[in-house]
């Protein structure tokens, strides 16, 4: 059994995630009126229609585009030396320290508690249609998996091959990949919860819910 308290304490010791904002493409950078220590917020609104705090503008081919904060947090450092300069794609612009939300902490702990089914190779993954349908209709946790069951489709180099699940029987508790994104070999794809442990897992969730104070 996991020592949840300890895990929580560990996370509490460093309850942050550093988010590095990189330039999405080439162009000239102008930073918005922000300085280290400033609080920023991510996308919000009931339909998440309001973009996050403006961090910088990137102008390419006379088209000025905003770069907004992806998450709530605090600006740690800004590479002000780049102000007004041309940057290549992927250049680091600034760093935001993001205080973990309850949901993220739960995910972190669950990653340790659940049985993780990992990617055998770097590729794009998605569910086979039947499973996908079921997940969409009834939500995750509705799909039970067992060893040898064909679950996923591995897509690489325009070719698709099925992939069978291996590991203990259980239900899908978490999904760690998004359709269309590459997953590196060894990264977790699914978090599986054996059915007899379901209550323990739910306890974990409840515990985190009560013990984690969001900033």
């Amino acid at each position: 059994m996991l020592n949840i308290k300890e895990l929580l304490e560990d996370i509490k010791a460093n309850p942050y995630k550093e988010i590095v904002i990189k330039s999405p493409h080439t162009g000239a950078v102008e930073f918005a009126d922000i300085k280290p220590g400033d609080k920023v917020r991510g996308r919000s609104g009931s339909y998440s229609e309001k973009p996050g705090t403006l961090l910088a503008n990137l102008t390419r081919e006379k088209n000025r585009k905003p770069i907004n904060a992806p998450e709530k947090g605090e600006v740690v450092n800004i590479r002000t030396e780049l102000e007004g300069k041309f940057v290549e794609a992927g250049e680091e612009l600034l760093t935001i320290r993001h205080f973990l939300t309850r949901k993220e902490v739960i995910e972190l702990i669950l990653k340790k508690a659940l049985h993780l089914f990992r990617a055998p190779e770097r590729a794009k993954y998605y569910f086979i249609p039947e499973v996908d349908q079921k997940l969409k209709v009834s939500g995750k946790r509705s799909v039970k998996v067992q060893d040898g069951m064909e679950m996923l489709i591995v897509s690489r180099m325009k070719r698709e091959t099925p992939l069978a699940y291996s590991g203990p029987e259980g239900i899908i508790y978490s999904v760690y990949f998004t359709r269309g994104d590459n997953v590196d070999a060894g990264e977790p794809l699914l978090g599986i919860c054996p059915e007899d442990q379901l209550t323990t897992i739910q306890d974990v969730v409840a515990k985190v819910q009560s013990e984690w104070d969001e900033e």
Binding site: P24, H25, T26, G27, R60, E61, E88, A89
Partner: peptide
Amino acid sequence: VYTISNYLDANEIFSVADH
């Protein structure tokens, strides 16, 4: 050598070319 986000994005090419 310039790093760009995507070979298929013409804007990237012109942006670097201008620079």
